[in-house]
Design a protein around this nucleic acid. Structure first.
Lengths: 215, 215
DNA sequence: TAGATTGTTAATCGATTAACAATC
DNA sequence: TAGATTGTTAATCGATTAACAATC
C-alpha cells in the first residue's frame, strides 16, 4: 500500500478543529495497542461521532487515506499534530495561580505537549518566586516586562472575573496575541488579539438541562 | 410597568443552554451594580453575542420582556437559575481527586451553587478519609455503596483516561444518571445515563488553529 | 475477483442573521 | 406622541447526514 504523506491545506471549520484533539487521543491509544491502520468507521465508534463526520473532517484536513484499507495512523497523528501546531508548542504564560491555574500547570498535555508554559503570574506575594508544578511564579506587576522578554505569544487566563480585564490588558501589552480565558467576562482586547473563552459551567448546564432532561 | 413573572415551558437548543450560564454571570454583575432592567442590545454587547441571538434565547426560554423597556433582571436571573436547576442543586460526587478534581471542588460555583458535591473518591490510600476543599474523600472501591446511600444523581469524572471507563461503570451502578467527564475517552454507559464530555484541549485547539490563525 | 473503505455530492437539518410590525 | 425595544417571521448560512461511485 502506497501512503501519500502529504496533508493539503484547506480551511477548517470550528467543529472539526474541536474534534481533532479527540481523534488524536484515540489514535494514540490505537497506536499504543500496536495498530497501524484505522478506518473511519472504527474511529467514529471509538470517538463517539458519526462515520461521515470523520470522513469529512479528514477530507477537510487533506489526510491521505487508502481506499478499501483506511488511514495509516502514524502520518495521521503527525498530520493532526502539525495542523494544530502541537509538534512545536507555542511559548505561553499563565496568569492566576489559583487551584484551576495550578491544575492546568500540572497537566502535561497543556503545560508541555500543546503549549510551552514558561512562566506564571499571580497577585499574591506569598507565591512570588516560588515554583508551582515546576513553573516559576512572578509578581503580576512584572507581567509585561517578563512576558515580553520571554517572547510569549499565548496567555492562559485563570484569574477571578474581577481581575480578568486588567490581566488581558497586560497580556496584550506584553505582545500576547492569543488568550485562553477561563473567566465568564467578555474581554475587550486590541484588534489582532483573539480570545477563546472557556466557560466550565456551560458544559454542566448542557449535561443537566440537555435533551429534555429537566431536573 | 407590569412584569409577568411566568416562564413558559419550551424546548431549548443546546447552543442556547450553553449561553445561559454566561447570561447569568453578566446579569448578576449588572444587578450588583444596582441595575434593575436590561435590554437585549446591552446584554448582547456585554456577553459578546449578537442581539437577535439574545432575543431568540430569551424567547425560547419564555422570559417575560417589556416592549420598549427591556427585561427585569431579577425574574430573569431567577428564571434562568430555575431552568438550569441551579436554584436547587443536585447531589453529586466527584471521582478522581487529582489537581483538576481538587480545583473543581474548590470552585464555589461548581461545588455548591450549581451542584451539591457531597463526597469524593480516589484510588490513592493517602487520601482516604481526608478532606479536600471541605469534601470528604473515600476509597474508590466504596463508591457504589457510598454514592448509593447518599442518593447522588450526578458524577464528576476527573480520573486518568485509563481509569475512566471503570469509574463510569461504578457511577452507573451507584445510580448516577448524569456524568460530567473530563476524560477524552468515549464512555460506554447503560441507557438512561447521559455523559457530557469536556475536552479542555478542544478549546485550546480552537484558539490556536481557529479563524485561519495557523501557527 | 470480491469485499471493504475512501472521497464526494446532494439532501436535510438546525442555528444565526436580518428585517420589521407590534407595543410600551 | 416619539423613541426604544420586544417578539416574530423569512432569509441565509453552515454543519451533518445519507447515498453512492470510484478504487484499493
Amino acid at each position: 500500500m502506497r501512503i501519500d504523506n502529504t496533508f493539503k491545506e484547506r480551511s477548517i471549520a470550528t467543529p472539526t478543529i474541536r474534534r481533532l484533539p479527540i481523534y488524536l487521543a484515540v489514535l494514540r491509544r490505537f497506536r499504543a495497542g500496536g495498530q497501524k491502520v484505522v478506518s473511519t468507521t472504527a474511529l467514529s465508534v471509538a470517538v463517539g461521532v458519526s462515520d461521515p463526520v470523520v470522513k469529512k473532517d479528514f477530507n477537510m484536513l487533506g489526510a491521505p487515506g487508502i481506499t478499501g484499507v483506511g488511514y495509516a495512523i502514524d502520518p495521521l497523528v503527525d498530520g493532526i499534530e502539525a495542523f494544530l501546531g502541537w509538534d512545536n508548542p507555542r511559548r505561553a504564560v499563565l496568569v492566576g495561580v489559583g487551584s484551576l491555574g495550578s491544575a492546568l500547570l500540572g497537566r502535561d498535555d497543556i503545560r508541555n505537549r500543546n503549549l510551552n508554559i514558561v512562566a506564571a503570574f499571580d497577585a499574591d506575594p506569598r507565591l512570588f518566586d516560588t515554583m508551582v508544578q515546576g513553573v516559576a511564579v512572578y509578581d503580576a506587576d512584572m507581567m509585561v516586562e517578563i512576558a515580553r522578554r520571554l517572547c510569549v505569544s499565548v496567555g492562559v487566563l485563570t484569574v477571578p472575573d474581577s481581575a480578568a480585564q486588567a490581566a488581558a490588558n497586560q497580556l496584550a501589552a506584553a505582545g500576547v496575541t492569543k488568550i485562553w480565558s477561563f473567566s465568564t467576562m467578555s474581554l475587550d482586547v486590541p484588534s489582532g488579539v483573539t480570545v477563546k473563552r472557556e466557560v466550565l459551567s456551560s458544559g454542566l448546564a448542557e449535561l443537566l438541562a440537555g435533551t429534555g432532561n429537566r431536573a
